[in-house]
Design a protein around this nucleic acid. Structure first.
Length: 727
DNA sequence: GCGTATAACGCATGT
DNA sequence: CACATGCGTTAT
């Protein structure tokens, strides 16, 4: 078998589709030869009384002394050559990180992941079924790559270090020759980039393709979001989740888990192909992994001291508002408690009795009087308290989530980097944590600071969380926004001629046109209010809002709301039929698909309960639109990432993905060049030949740039001339 | 009886 | 209406 066939297999087809995993055996592990090192490890692991530090030392010792594992740091030159040769001959490499507390990535999720101490790599050569699925094959081998920072003066260690680093780099760039498998591969890549940040550039691993069972499991069923390795095994590997025999040594458990991981991946790939998800997995989701790892390993600098000052200022402001609230209520109560506020507003002050003409919202679950913003706005003319609470809540939210929250993400460092989750959103979007970069307030808030001691009575301060994020010296932020991507996709998916016509004119303001068309007035006559209405109606119709909800959003009566809705669906008749046929298809097949084949099954579409069934219908419609938009945005991200990483000059880094907007940090000198690359790449996604995607509407990208995320302004770049930029 | 973990809820932010 | 994360309160 030549290299070409191996390469093709790794690139285009699922692994080992022909070979079936061996039948599960009764015996879990082979006889355990127990050298001195492992015995110690076992005792320590079982006792559970010792400090985690000594546990760690012993697990490392176990890794090193176990005869099945080769410690890459302790090999002589000849053995090194042998290991490299074994690596070349392996057809699959299965990897996991080993942490200092002795756990691996395959252990159940922990609150705080301990520091990494090494990587365990299984070289799998023979893919036949002659060995038990959780045991090493005859020609398989295991290598432990210890990650340690040796002090600069310890010259004798550099050779070992160098060998391990080179080997790891070779592994990560070998994915064109042999397959790589790792559960939570992004974490491994990010950790590697951080560990070797002096010696390893993110571009060197940008092309790396690692199979990740977490991603494939999520793609098969996007509803089960956070399943552990053991859950995945139980769910997809037809095994009633056996707990390892208590006598089994820890190292043996790790090894058998690593062996099983290989077969789990094989099984998941089979399922992906059967469901028509292989292309999406292989051409999109796998490429997200290095892109997200690179994103997470980038530092975004934040002015910590300014943040602390803002925190103090907001703290005193909240104390003032708390006093005012107590005074207005005529009693002391916990202002941040919605329960206590409810009793004050509705049992003590009985404000609901004084506005019987208005309908006050109820809480979702318990059908109590709500104290939400909508409710407080209804009550604000009756009593001073609601207004005070509204202001208190605004300040409280800013302080707790966006000031103190971000500060708590920066303990012992002066920068932040969010965690980007690939598998937590059912529609295929990505999400962010610690901090949630996608939920930072768009608008600044004005704080009126009352100072009684100073000469001035009042001072207005604006707090803008986005403005805390500043590019490095000599760099600029560039934002690229897919304009109305969901609406454009709706036009494409529904083929509605009127909706399509709106997008043929690239100059026009879509929502203004929509409003004029729909209200029957000229574009010049459309007020900004009507434009906002049009915007909200469009999206609420797409998401299947009822009249109740719509009237709440628009602030008009339910009759008027349903009148708006009707006239919209009347004007764009094909949108209606798209919604109906999507629901019909979901009912027939039990699932719906996005434009690139992403899949969501909705078992509740068959529910006898009307409410449950209607919810599934709305989710079906929403998934097709939102999921397709997610497909496009991720594809844009990947294509730009690949262009930058294969360019010797471009250096832009992706800071954040805000669903239909990409935020980059760009060297000042490259701003225009890169902006053109981004715009062209994104807009060219109208046609993706390889996936058979041909949108009936053009895609439009709006660019903006600035020296802070809080102050971005429109960026116009010269249009690309037809003769320029040959590929 | 009094402390800490956890789950559910309500309310915020974003797309 | 859809999809998320984060913080605080309250009950268990």
């Amino acid at each position: 078998m030549g290299l070409e066939t191996t390469r093709d297999a790794a690139k285009n087809t699922p692994p080992s589709m022909t070979s079936k995993p061996p039948k599960q055996k009764e015996a879990r592990c082979g006889p355990d030869r127990a050298p001195s090192g492992t015995k110690i490890a076992q005792e320590v692991a079982n006792s559970g009384k010792l400090q985690s530090q000594s546990k760690a030392a012993c697990l490392t010792a176990a890794m090193t002394f176990d005869p099945r594992i080769k410690d890459a740091g302790k090999l002589d030159p000849e053995e090194r050559m042998q290991v490299l040769e074994e690596m070349r001959q392996a057809s699959v490499l299965v990897l996991t990180m080993v942490y200092q507390d002795g756990t691996t990535q395959l252990n159940p999720e922990q609150k705080r992941t301990p520091p990494v101490c090494g990587l365990l790599v299984l070289f799998k050569r023979d893919l036949d079924c002659s060995t038990p699925e959780d045991s090493l094959g005859l020609n398989d081998s295991l290598v432990y790559l210890k990650l340690e920072h040796t002090p600069a003066w310890a010259q004798q260690n550099t050779h070992r270090e160098l060998f391990i680093r080179e080997m790891l780099l070779q592994i990560l760039s070998s994915c064109q020759l042999s397959q790589l498998v790792c559960y939570k591969a992004k974490d491994l890549l990010r950790t590697t980039l951080q560990f070797y940040r002096r010696h390893l550039n993110w571009k060197q691993v940008a092309g790396c393709r690692i199979q990740d069972p977490q991603v494939s499991g999520w793609l098969l069923d996007p509803t089960d979001t956070a399943s552990s390795y053991q859950d995945l095994l139980a769910k997809h590997y037809r095994r009633p989740s056996i707990t390892p025999a208590p006598g089994t040594k820890r190292v043996s458990q790790v090894i058998s888990n690593l062996c099983l991981l290989y077969w789990l991946n094989v099984e998941l790939c089979c399922k992906l192909q059967r469901q028509g998800l292989w292309e999406l997995y292989s051409n999109m989701e796998l490429h997200m992994i290095p892109a997200l790892a690179a994103m997470e390993s980038h530092h975004i600098h934040v002015d910590k001291e300014a943040l602390k000052r803002t925190s103090d200022m907001l703290g005193t402001k909240m104390k003032q508002l708390e006093q005012e609230a107590h005074q207005a209520a005529g009693q002391i109560f916990l202002v941040s408690s919605s329960t206590q506020l409810r009793t004050v507003l509705f049992e003590k002050l009985r404000l609901h009795e004084r506005c019987e003409n208005k309908k006050l919202p109820k809480t979702i679950n318990k059908q109590q009087q709500s104290t939400s913003e909508a409710a407080l706005l209804q009550l604000q003319d009756l009593h001073p308290l609601p207004k005070i609470i509204l202001e208190y809540r605004q300040v409280h939210k800013i302080k707790s989530t966006f000031v103190d929250g971000i500060l708590s993400c920066m303990t012992s460092k002066n920068y932040i980097s969010s965690t980007w989750c690939q598998t937590s959103v059912v529609t295929g979007r990505i999400s962010a944590k610690h901090p949630n970069f996608q939920a930072l307030p768009r608008q600044p808030v004005q704080i009126i600071k009352k100072q009684y001691v100073q000469g001035k009575e009042e001072e207005v301060v604006t707090v803008h969380p986005r403005a805390m994020f500043i590019p490095q010296e000599g760099w600029t932020f560039l934002a690229a926004d897919f304009c109305q991507v969901e609406l454009r996709l709706l036009a494409h998916l529904s083929c509605d001629p009127e909706l399509l016509r709106i997008f043929t004119n690239p100059q026009a303001d879509v929502f203004t046109m929509l409003a004029s068309q729909w209200k029957g007035v000229s574009e010049g006559e459309v007020t900004s209010e009507e434009r906002e209405h049009a915007k909200r109606i469009v999206y609420s119709v797409v998401y299947g809002a009822g009249r109740e909800r719509l009237s709440g959003i628009l602030g008009v009566s339910a009759e008027q709301a349903s009148q708006f809705q009707d006239s919209f669906l009347q004007t764009y008749k094909e949108v209606q039929t798209f919604i109906q046929s999507t629901i019909q298809q979901c009912h027939k097949q039990g699932h719906v698909l996005s434009i690139m084949g992403r899949r969501r099954s909705l078992p509740n579409i068959h529910s006898a309960d009307w409410g449950i069934r209607m919810q599934a219908e709305r989710q079906a419609v929403n998934f097709v639109v939102q999921g397709s938009a997610a497909d496009l945005c991720k594809m844009a991200m990947i294509r730009i990432f690949s262009q930058v990483s294969s360019s010797s000059s471009l250096s832009a880094r992706l800071i954040a993905q805000l669903h239909d907007e990409l935020l980059y940090e760009v060297e000042d000198s490259q701003l225009e060049e890169f902006a053109a690359v981004v715009k062209n790449t994104m807009e060219s996604l109208q046609h993706i030949d390889s996936l058979g995607v041909h949108l009936k509407v053009p895609l439009k990208v709006a660019l903006s740039s600035g020296k802070s995320w809080g102050s971005m302004s429109e960026l116009n770049i010269p249009p690309t001339s037809p003769c320029a930029s040959p590929l």
